[in-house]
Design a binder for these strands. Structure first.
Length: 599
RNA sequence: GCCACUAUAGCUCAGUUGGUAGAGCAACGGAUUCGUAACCCGUAGGUCAGCAGUUCGAUUCUGCUUAGUGGCUCCA
């Protein structure tokens, strides 16, 4: 049990490994961090130091940024403070006294925080030895309870998260009541690194980058390109089944197109700069909606034609911050699995429902991703940030309510997030956590009443009058690039057979079986199986090890015995030696596995 | 874009008071023809990311550029 000092000053004993204690424990460690920093660098100004999902951080305004040596020293000082086993004491001050105290200490940011506290709010401080900090608590009662701590990383951060404000130095760390818990945590971090798609992508020759091509511009190697081709064919086939029509549109457009759509005002800073031609100004497109709007407009549409579903695997270009690009997860050229559904208002519910069902079919049925690996998010506008969103309160209220209703009707668990909508409308996003704990969107389904207006889209209704359609923007794989990064991390590179770039590797034991190996290879290839022969002059153990590291689902070991009986000795990546069977039997089995998309 | 860090052979990485570089794997050659996770011997491979500066001399020190890593901001 560990004693804590609660917000009202009372004490409460909590279990060492309880979730409740975790955050309190980390928060106190952030105070220890701040105390260590103030001891070593007294002129540092304190920002805030909360517990986070995994550990804690503290922001400091520093005279010069901390170097690695500084960080080592700070960590040592923290351990000293732990050894000193200092008790924490809570106290309250009036607003005036609190401001006075913090002004005396030169803590300008704390003064700012106090001034922002609502009238009547209790202003409490926590003191440990010579160090005192404005803090609501709760805290653990002694610094000595922190048996294991580690500073994990540093970063620049802006005061109150605003780029216009002062830049602070942020230090991240983690701590535990037991040393073994820290070891366990570090092990988990190490495991996450092992399934990082950039690491696996290199090991399996999936993609590469080159500084002559540029940041955020990966190139797909044959193995990665095969994965991408399979996925793109797969999703387009699904869409065709559901009545989508696919188009091709250019990656370039006149800048006027984006002025018409409204994207220019909202996002020109995130687009590649304009290319001036003789008479026109061209830009690389950051999204495909405007092109598809024009395709809709290319004909007179009847209410009977709707919904019209226009799909495209389209390359888009976004000038992502250099610090934001990351492997295949965040790139500057991406291939969107995009589609725009033009629907009548009375068709919204059904069409959004169909999109959500398709997402479910892909993510749960076909790929079998664990339900814990993604969350549905209803992304709403930020009502206080009018400039960022199209100004039409009624539209927003209706659209947001409609999406919420559909989610509830389909009994989908979701959470709501303000300020995450597109400028033209609310979205249902599916958020996933990457190996690096980044929260990113993959599939998305967005409701849009604005672009139809902007482009003056119409259909002729039953009443022979013109009506305005609604547009649903949706992406199932999100982008091919990000989907592949997710797929790699979820499977740790052990791709299901139907997506594996090489599904079977044939391993002749000696040169005597090479001809037979070629024969078997031909047969498999005729059955659309992706197969390779390893005819290198190596022992069978070596060939198996190599294929195993390449994560090939099946190895066929061919020796004299197999040749005599026109059979193959099958070895599975997962379960090892499976035994001998006739070639035809193996073909049937693997075809069945591919057909059913076995996990 | 911001802060810190990093860049050595195809890959993973050594290389300290500044004197132009190594290992393992991969590649290539030879020997071997082998039964379920690494056979042996040999050879070749580097403008030490790029550009400039300091120095008699720079992989090593300094600056800039490019790319990457961890975060921040951003993510239509």
């Amino acid at each position: 049990m560990i004693r804590t000092i609660q917000k009202d000053g009372s004490t409460l004993d909590l279990e060492e490994n309880s979730e409740e204690l975790k955050k309190i424990f980390w928060h106190t460690t952030s105070h220890i961090l701040a105390q260590a920093v103030k001891r070593l660098y007294p002129n540092t100004k304190l920002g805030i130091g909360p517990a986070i999902e995994n550990g804690f951080y503290y922001d400091f305004r520093v005279e010069r940024p901390f170097t690695e040596e500084d960080i080592t020293k700070i960590e040592e000082e923290m351990k000293k403070i732990v050894k000193e086993d200092i008790p924490l004491e809570r106290s309250e001050l009036s607003r005036e006294d609190a401001i006075k105290l913090m002004e005396e200490k030169g803590e300008q940011y704390k003064v700012e925080l106090i001034k922002e506290l609502p009238e009547g709010e209790t202003i409490s401080f926590y003191k440990q030895g010579e160090f005192i900090d404005l803090c609501a608590g709760p805290h653990i009662n002694r610094t000595g309870k922190v048996k294991a701590l580690k500073i994990l990383s540093t970063s620049a951060a802006y005061w109150k998260g605003n780029q216009e404000n002062d830049s602070m130095q942020r230090i991240y760390g983690i701590s535990f009541p037991k040393a073994s818990q820290l070891e366990e945590h570090l092990k988990l971090l190490e495991e996450a690194k092992q399934r990082d798609h950039r690491k696996i992508g290199k090991e399996l020759d999936l993609f590469m980058t080159h500084e002559l091509v540029g940041a955020g511009l990966p190139m797909y190697l044959p193995n990665g390109a095969t994965i991408r081709r399979i996925l793109e064919r797969y999703i387009q086939d699904k869409e065709i089944e559901l009545g989508y029509k696919h188009v091709y549109t250019p990656s370039l457009a006149n800048v006027e197109l984006y002025k018409t759509s409204g994207h220019w005002d909202h996002y020109k800073d995130d687009m590649f700069p304009v290319m001036k031609m003789d008479n026109e100004e061209m830009v690389l497109r950051p999204m495909n909606c405007p092109h598809h709007m024009l395709i809709y407009k290319n004909a007179t549409r009847s209410y009977r034609d709707l919904p019209i579903r226009i799909g495209e695997l389209a390359n888009d270009f976004r000038y992502e911050n250099s610090g934001a690009v990351c492997g295949l997860e965040r790139v500057r050229q991406m291939c969107q699995n995009d589609a725009h559904l033009f629907v009548r208002p009375d068709q919204i519910k059904e069409e959004v429902g169909k999109v959500l069902n398709l997402i479910k079919e892909v993510y749960q049925k076909d790929f079998g991703f664990a339900e814990t690996s993604f969350k549905y998010r209803l992304s709403l506008r930020d009502k206080n940030n009018k400039a960022k969103y199209i100004d039409n309160d009624e539209m927003w209220e209706t659209a947001e309510a409609q999406l919420r209703e559909i989610l509830k009707e389909l009994k989908i668990d979701f959470y709501e997030a303000e300020g995450e909508a597109a400028f033209y409308g609310p979205k249902i996003d599916i958020q996933i956590k990457t190996a690096l704990n980044h929260d990113v969107t993959i599939p998305t389904c967005q409701l849009d009443f604005a672009l139809p207006e902007r482009f003056d889209l119409t259909y002729v209704g039953e009443d022979n009058k013109e009506h305005r359609p609604v547009v649903i923007h949706r992406a199932i794989l999100g982008t091919s690039d990000r989907f592949i990064s997710f797929l790699i991390e979820e499977t740790k590179g052990l791709l299901p057979t139907w997506i594996s770039p090489v599904q079977v590797k044939i391993l002749p034991i000696s040169d005597n079986q090479i001809n037979y190996a070629e024969e078997v290879c031909k047969k498999l290839r005729k059955n659309d199986i992706r197969v390779e022969v390893d005819s290198s002059n190596e022992k069978i153990g070596y060939k198996i090890r190599k294929a195993q590291l390449e994560k090939v689902p099946y190895m066929l070991v061919l020796g004299a015995k197999e040749m005599e009986t026109t059979s193959v000795a099958v070895r599975s990546r997962k379960t090892g030696d499976v035994g001998q069977m006739k070639v035809d039997e193996f073909v049937e089995k693997i075809k069945e596995e591919i057909e059913t998309k076995e996990k």
